[in-house]
Design a protein around this nucleic acid. Structure first.
Lengths: 237, 237
DNA sequence: CACTGTGAAGTACTTCACAGCT
DNA sequence: AGCTGTGAAGTACTTCACAGTG
């Protein structure tokens, strides 16, 4: 139901099951998720003036196992020095590059309710490689205001402003009832990715990247483990 | 570095690798994550008056494969009827129970900035089995106010109020700089779980459940795939 | 004959364990 | 001695495929 099947010769198998040196090696999903943690850790170590760290130290900072850290980093090449560890600055830059953060990305915040405002206030964007270029709201009394140096536009001007300001990513913070309609407008306007805070599953063309942050799911994840008092299962994420 | 090793007799191995009928069968992590989606889907089907659905229909609504749906549901027992499908009402109630939502959970919102306010406004809590019992803020000008029927208390009264109102879960929406300090107070006050919106990794005793929602990670996940234009990799989450 | 429940096969990820550099 | 990089083994999850059932 997903892709095509093509059973592979056991010898030819993908990356022969591990990192390997072949071009276009595919990075496992969990590893991609770990990269942000490494970035945070590197930033902290750099602030603290630590030049070199071991996989054990990095693991501790990122709440992972040293094995995972070494495996993860090895996907990108051989960045450590045996007997020594990893150079914080070099590897930090490398991870940034892998995450696509060598360039800056244009971001729009769509929906300036309390959530949208908290994102506008949130300082972390610039230093992380994101530039909030515009905000949008359907409320005429909000349109025209400028918050934290970001102008609020009417939703109707999405297409024009998105193209003019070369915006790549939309953060969707409109009410659930409007989410799909606004999403359709974003798609028409040629947006490339959406971070969706509305508690609905958006229907979009398959080329578009969507990631959802769902409060209810997160809460339910907690209650699942609270209820079963499965003291097992570490914090995760 | 994690647990102890104890290599198991291949016969005795955990659940013998699959659902099985043994008591205390362990639900795989991904399956737990899927449950919320099923719940949303069931709610929708129930609203639409659909009494019975197939794994294919449920899969489509939850953006998963029918195989995964059947496997997931089979962990809890045999709820479907061969040749027919699943009873929406029955299974909906069952999933709710599994997620621990048969009871109501007391929730506190800690930090009433824009983000905290947007959560106070958010209607979805009550119908999802959560009761926002209190909010806390360190700003004296906010303390005493009542928003959406929820009173704002000073952070200093955390311990007292949490115990009095039998609050289980804290949603942490304070600035990063205060997150760890406030977390320590929450731990002292006997909180059982924290949903953390502050962009820091909280250090807590291992018995406590923590789940983090990290804006930067989510954005970086998007840029990773945007940058590589790996059109592969479905939306996920 | 549509649809579930589940062995069995396949694939993905983690952990072990150790050779090889510093 | 300390630490990386990586085969190999182990475990977890997904998909296939089909017998069993209404």
């Amino acid at each position: 139901m997903r892709d095509r099947k093509i059973p592979l010769d056991p010898i030819t198998v993908r990356n022969s099951g591990r990192p390997g040196k072949g071009t276009d090696r595919v990075i496992p999903g969990p590893t991609v998720g770990h990269l942000s943690r490494y970035l945070r850790a590197f930033a902290q170590f750099e602030r603290d003036g630590v030049p070199v760290i071991s996989s054990r130290e990095l693991a501790s900072a990122a709440d992972l196992s040293p094995d995972v850290v070494r495996r993860d980093l090895a996907y990108f090449g051989q960045f450590g020095r045996r007997g020594i560890g990893y150079d914080v600055k070099t590897l930090g830059a490398k991870v940034k590059g892998i995450l696509g953060l060598s360039r800056s990305w244009g971001v729009a915040i769509v929906g300036v309710g309390h959530l949208g405002m908290s994102l506008l206030q949130y300082g972390g964007f610039e230093k992380a490689g994101f530039t909030v270029e515009a905000a949008f709201d359907s409320d005429p009394s909000k349109v025209g205001w400028e918050l934290e140096g970001v102008k609020i536009w009417p939703v109707g001007s999405l297409g024009q402003v998105l193209r003019e300001k070369k915006i790549d990513i939309a953060i969707l913070t409109v009410p659930a009832s409007q989410a799909q309609r606004v999403t359709d407008e974003l798609v028409d306007a040629g947006i490339r990715a959406i971070l969706n805070f509305a508690p609905v599953r958006l229907s979009v063309p398959p080329t578009l990247l969507v990631r959802g942050v769902d409060l209810a799911s997160e809460m339910e994840h907690l209650t699942y483990f609270l209820d079963k008092k499965k003291a097992s299962r570490p914090s995760r994420r």
